[in-house]
Every structure is written in structure tokens, then in C-alpha cells.
Design a binder for these strands. Structure first.
Length: 429
RNA sequence: GGAGGGUUAGCGAAGUGGUCAUAACGCGGCGGUCUUGAAAACCGUUUGAGGGCAACCUCACGAGAGUUCGAAUCUCUCACCCUCCGCCA
């Protein structure tokens, strides 16, 4: 949610910013400004009448005590009551539309982002060298099948297309990755949070999936219960609500959280043969980093999160690049995003393994997450940032493909061996 | 699933239709007096949201709806917490 003051005072700059994301919100912004004027007029009208009502009402006990006549005063109050009812009804209508539009207005991009979509993304830096093979490499599906790491066929039997089963050593390799990630974050002072995997609507509203971008999530409705839960599409949805409706002290910031959860996504539509296997499934494992900061602390936090994600990928020995997303490729909820991308030899180009974003105060406003600034004693909105650190579903394919040898075996990255009893090579029995 | 009890400021708690919600009272926090310093004592202070240039006004007693000129207080629905019973990994 964007500060209404910003919309009121600099609507044109805001429109330009959103245009960089490829979103023309002029009509919505103009309507919001119109509703804001109506809203404030109605509030003043209603509150003036309420003040009069309160004041008049207070005279009643006194008049009764003195045995006076209250007929006239009741008439006056009845008329006031009706006027207030009419004003409040109108106000509610205006506010409903106002709030709806406010919630769907995207987060404007940071000033330094270039306009345009994916094609305008700017690689900032590269690490290591692309992997070269002196034999014909296999793709990760074949490798994982042959080595007995993943059972795609039975995964589909259990839950349909887009699901798989990690089995045996595959499960242990997956668990090793997650442990490697979590150990690094814990060493960096992040608090490990194991959160519910089903969330209530308000979490999605705060994080930003709802009301507009809800076609990606699985919803769970029960016949005996009006409430709908949804399967979290990322731990961010949970972490972004931890301090909802809270006012923290300035000294408590930054709050640094890390969480492991499966992530559930509908991924409606098809993505072609390029993204087979576990690259785009309905359920995948992800370790998510999340920070609550002061406004002035958010830039450093962003760099920290990017650095942490980079360290994890390079720790595994992968060549990768860090890409600054153009405004149009940043999600509607975020102000800036850097992606870390690796190569999966069987696929074209680079694939995202981590996405680090700053929401500025967009999520904090949606969820009323504030802190009290010591110097002024005033409450301000916190800034929120998140980043994957990391998702395994892109790392695992890259790992087996890049580390495969001519005989179909796979070398285990050094950093994972301690989680696998020292195992160095995974080979078919 | 059943039966009771509860939800009021940072915490505990009073208030059962108006003249105490700018929330009694107690604890805690902060500031001060006193003191070499501290403790004790005493004095003061201590929620958030919204509207207004301002004076100031409005709202919030778990949430929502209703009754009423007026609701913390009466009615209804829901959420959450506690106790007991049942079921259960």
C-alpha cells in the first residue's frame, strides 16, 4: 500500500514510476484522489454531527434530574441520528472503494531502476566460469532417475503432474542442501522460524498475494468452516505477518528471520519442455530470509541479503550471475529486486535460484507494522525485505547436471559432504 | 465434539445503560525532588488510529451486527484464551 499523502501530493511522479513497471495506473490514481476528497468531506460532516450528538446527549441526565421537558431534545437527537446514519453509509461506500483501489495499486519501483521487462535486466556481476563438458551431458531428470534420487512417476501418482518424490539419497541430498543453507543463516544471526504452512487470508493481504494476485495459491475450504486457509506460496507470506499490528521499538530493528517451508504454487498454465522436472513444480522446498528494518537501514539490509544468497551459491561451487531486474520484471509488490541466476546445462540461459527484494514500506502499511523512533517518539512504518536463501528446486538440477561425470555419477559439493556422512560421489549401484 | 468461565492501557484489575474511559486502584516504565551514589519516600508522566491550518473534534473496552436519544454494560453472530469431559498422534 502506498502512502495516501504521496498520492495526493505527487500523483504524476507516482504515475511515471508505475509506468516504468509497464502499469498504467493513471485512472486508478485519479479515482483514488477523487475518493479521498469525498472521504475527508464525509468524515468531517459525520464527526461534526457526532460531536453535536455527544454534547446534546450529555444534557439529558441533567434535564431529567431537574424534571425538565426532554421532548424537544429527543426530536433533535433523532434527526441527528438519521443524518449521521446517512453520512456514515455514504462514507462506508466511499471507503470501501478507496481501500480496494489502494490495495491493488502496485509498489512503485526505486528511482534507479530502468523501465522495461526481462530484456532490460542488467547483469551486475558474474562469478566463476560456465561449466564445460568433454562428453555429452545428461539432463537432471535422467540423472536423478538413474541414480534413484527422485521418483517422478510415483510423485504424479500421489498428487498429479508437478509433484515428485525425493527418495533415499535424493532425500538426504535435499536435506543436506537445506541444512547447509540454514546453518549459514543461523551463523549469521538469523532467527530460525518454523511457521504454519497454511495461512489465513490476512497474511496474503499483508504480503500482497491478495486480493489481486491470488491465482497462484491453493485455497483450502472446509464445509463446516467459513474461513479459508491457503497453502503458503513462500515463507515470506508468513514472515511478513509476524509483526502485523505491532509497534516495535527502534532498538529491536533490524529483525532478521529465516524460515524453511515447502512452497505451494498452482503454476496455472504451461511452461513448455524447457521447464520440466523440478524446475517449476507445485511444491518445492525453500529457505527464505526476511528482514524488518528502519527506512534508512533497508539499503544495507538489501545488500546483505544479496551477499548471503551469493555466498551460498558460490559455496556450492556454481558459476552464477547477479542480475538487477528492470522495473517491469520486478513484482507488483516490490520496489527493487536482484536475482541470482545459475546455469542448468540442459536448459537455455540462466535460471533464477534466488530473488532478493525490498518492499520498502509497502507490506508494512498493508499490515500496520510500525516502530517507535527514539529521537522523535513517533511511530513510523518499518521496511520489509525478503530473499530466497535458497530454493532447492533449481539448485538440485544444477547440482546434478553440473557435477555429473561421464559415467553418470555425480560429485557431491564439498560443503554438503558433512551432512552425508562424508559421501563424495553419488553413483548408481 | 460437549459443558462452563473469560477477553478493559505494558501487566493485574474495577466499572453491569448517561453525570469517572482524558479508564478507579495496584504493579511496571520514564522524568523529577531528596541523596556522595543508590534504595525508600514523595511529585509528575506513561495507548493507538483518523479528520482539521489551528483551536479542537471523532473513533477504539476481543471482532462484527443489533436495541437505544445514549452501550464496556442489554441482544445476536463469530474469533481467541482458560477449566473440565470425550476423542486422538
Amino acid at each position: 500500500m502506498i502512502d495516501i499523502k504521496l498520492i495526493r501530493e505527487t500523483p504524476d511522479a507516482l504515475k511515471q514510476g508505475l509506468l516504468k513497471k509497464g502499469k498504467d495506473c493513471s485512472a486508478v490514481i485519479d479515482r483514488i484522489i477523487e475518493l479521498d476528497v469525498q472521504r475527508r468531506t464525509l468524515i468531517t460532516e459525520s464527526e461534526t454531527k457526532k460531536a453535536e450528538q455527544n454534547k446534546t446527549s450529555k444534557q439529558i441526565p441533567q434535564i431529567k434530574k431537574e424534571g425538565g421537558d426532554t421532548t424537544q431534545i429527543f426530536e433533535q437527537l433523532n434527526s441527528l441520528k438519521e443524518q449521521i446514519r446517512i453520512a456514515d453509509t455514504k462514507l462506508r461506500e466511499v471507503e470501501n472503494e478507496f481501500n480496494e483501489l489502494m490495495l491493488e495499486l502496485p509498489n512503485p519501483p526505486d528511482d534507479d531502476l530502468v523501465a522495461g521487462g526481462k530484456e532490460s535486466n542488467e547483469p551486475l556481476r558474474f562469478f566463476g566460469e560456465p561449466h564445460a563438458f568433454d562428453f555429452e551431458p545428461k539432463n537432471h531428470m535422467d540423472l536423478c532417475n538413474n541414480l534413484g534420487l527422485i521418483d517422478y512417476t510415483r510423485g504424479v501418482k500421489l498428487a498429479g503432474s508437478g509433484f515428485w518424490i525425493y527418495r533415499g539419497l535424493g532425500s538426504r541430498l535435499e536435506w543436506a542442501l537445506l541444512n547447509y543453507f540454514l546453518d549459514a543463516h543461523i551463523a549469521d544471526g538469523y532467527e530460525l522460524m518454523l511457521v504454519p504452512h497454511m495461512l489465513e487470508y490476512q497474511c496474503g493481504l499483508t504480503a500482497g498475494q491478495f486480493p489481486k494476485y491470488d491465482d497462484e495459491v491453493y485455497k483450502i475450504a472446509n464445509p463446516s468452516d467459513d474461513r479459508i486457509h491457503y497453502m503458503l506460496p513462500t515463507a515470506e507470506a508468513a514472515l511478513a505477518s509476524i509483526h502485523r499490528d505491532e509497534i516495535l521499538t527502534e532498538a529491536e530493528l533490524p529483525k532478521k528471520y529465516v524460515s524453511y517451508t515447502p512452497c505451494f504454487r498452482r503454476e496455472a498454465g504451461t511452461y513448455g519442455a524447457d521447464e520440466r522436472g523440478m524446475v517449476r513444480g507445485h511444491q518445492f522446498n525453500k529457505v527464505e530470509m526476511f528482514q524488518y528494518t528502519t527506512p534508512e537501514g533497508s539499503a544495507d539490509a538489501f545488500d546483505e541479503l544479496v551477499g548471503k544468497a551469493e555466498a551460498l551459491v558460490s559455496g556450492l561451487g556454481f558459476h552464477f550471475r547477479t542480475v538487477k531486474l528492470a522495473a517491469g520484471d520486478v513484482s507488483a509488490l516490490m520496489a527493487r529486486t536482484y536475482d541470482i541466476e545459475i546455469q542448468i546445462p540442459s536448459m537455455n540461459g540462466y535460471k533464477e535460484v534466488s530473488s532478493v527484494s525490498s518492499a520498502r514500506c509497502y507490506q508494512a502499511r498493508r499490515g500496520a507494522m510500525r516502530f517507535k523512533r527514539e529521537s522523535t517518539g513517533k511511530t513510523e512504518f518499518m521496511y520489509t525485505l525478503n530473499g530466497s536463501g535458497l530454493a532447492t528446486s533449481r539448485i538440485m538440477p544444477a547440482l546434478v547436471e553440473q557435477n555429473q561425470q561421464k559415467d553418470g555419477s555425480v560429485v557431491v559439493p564439498e560443503v554438503l559432504r558433512k551432512y552425508l556422512g562424508g559421501l563424495e560421489i553419488i553413483s548408481a549401484e
